[in-house]
């Protein structure tokens, strides 16, 4: 029995349940069209402007940071799996099993430290920081 058949079936179920609920609701619910109903909600005020607002640049910064870090953690997973076996194996010592990972994490941390210091993960600046620094996104 392949594991992934079951998982696929769960995906099917996961799709069918919402769809089922939607169809039940479709049969039950009333429909009373009215223009003002469809206006977007802005705390009762008349909506102004579109939604393509410019938001904080920090969203991009953390997103970029994440892409890199997340993938690097994926590279650590294989290491974590074989770590104990490598320790047990004759030909690799502790240094050989642990060293590369420490180096890897160290480089990651240098990157993090740099991002930290240059304000890539700082959401808001204190007034003093605003004074001293140029606009560094």
């Amino acid at each position: 029995m392949n594991d992934w058949i079951a998982i696929g079936m769960l995906a099917l179920v996961g799709l069918l349940i919402p769809l089922g609920m939607m169809s039940v609701s479709y049969l039950l619910r009333p429909s009373v069209p009215e223009t003002s109903k469809r206006a977007t909600y802005e705390s009762g005020e008349v909506p102004t402007g579109g939604t393509r607002i410019r938001f904080n640049i920090q969203y991009y910064m953390v997103a970029l940071l994440f892409v890199v870090f997340d993938i690097e953690t994926v590279l650590l997973f294989p290491w974590a799996v074989v770590y104990q076996d490598a320790l047990a194996a004759e030909e690799y010592g502790l240094l050989h099993a642990l060293g590369p990972m420490l180096l890897f994490v160290a480089i990651l941390l240098v990157g993090l430290a740099w991002a930290w210091r240059t304000g890539a993960v700082q959401w808001a600046r204190t007034p003093r920081q605003l004074e001293s620094g140029a606009d560094r996104p």
């Binding site: 892409v67 890199v68 997340d70 993938i71 690097e72 994926v74 590279l75 294989p78």
Partner: peptide, 11 residues
């Protein structure tokens, strides 16, 4: 795995 990592970095 490496390719994925590099693709992410590229993005």
């Amino acid at each position: 795995l490496f390719t994925m990592a590099l693709a992410a970095a590229e993005v």
